[in-house]
Write a protein that binds this DNA or RNA. Structure first.
Length: 113
DNA sequence: GCGATGACTTCTT
DNA sequence: GAAGAAGCCATCG
């Protein structure tokens, strides 16, 4: 831990935020990135989830893109698991897209504030 | 070491 | 308003 600390911190932050997402709620990569200060680097958030998925048990299915589309469902154990899990939590998903995404949107910088 | 790709977002045409 | 291109940072080939 010396120079890599910054990067690790970013990953840790993502895990914390995603784990703090209330059940039946979803968020976007940009929101997390912006909250962490990586505004513009939403891709890193996605990478963090990929790395975190097999590492930590975080509800990555609660994280979707800006339009609420389950873009990363393919990265789950089984395609469709993401949607099933969301529905299991009370989130309605249609055509790999979160219904009422704006309503279920969970902004860390606003809700967590 | 350079090029290409990726669970995205935002600006510009 | 919609479509295309660029930007961002890290990992893989």
């Amino acid at each position: 831990m010396s120079k890599k600390d910054s990067k690790e911190n970013f990953f840790q932050n993502v895990y914390e935020v995603v784990q703090l997402i209330p059940r039946g709620r979803v968020t976007s990569y940009g929101a997390i990135a912006s909250y962490l200060g990586a505004k513009g680097s939403a891709r890193m958030v996605g990478w963090a989830l990929i790395a975190s998925h097999p590492m930590t048990k975080i509800p990555a299915h609660r994280v979707v893109n800006r339009v609420g589309m389950l873009t990363g469902k393919q990265h789950f154990d089984h395609p469709g698991a993401m949607q099933e899990r969301l529905e299991q939590e009370g989130v309605r998903v249609e055509n790999d897209q979160v219904a009422d995404f704006e309503k279920l949107f969970w902004d860390p910088s606003k809700e967590l504030l």
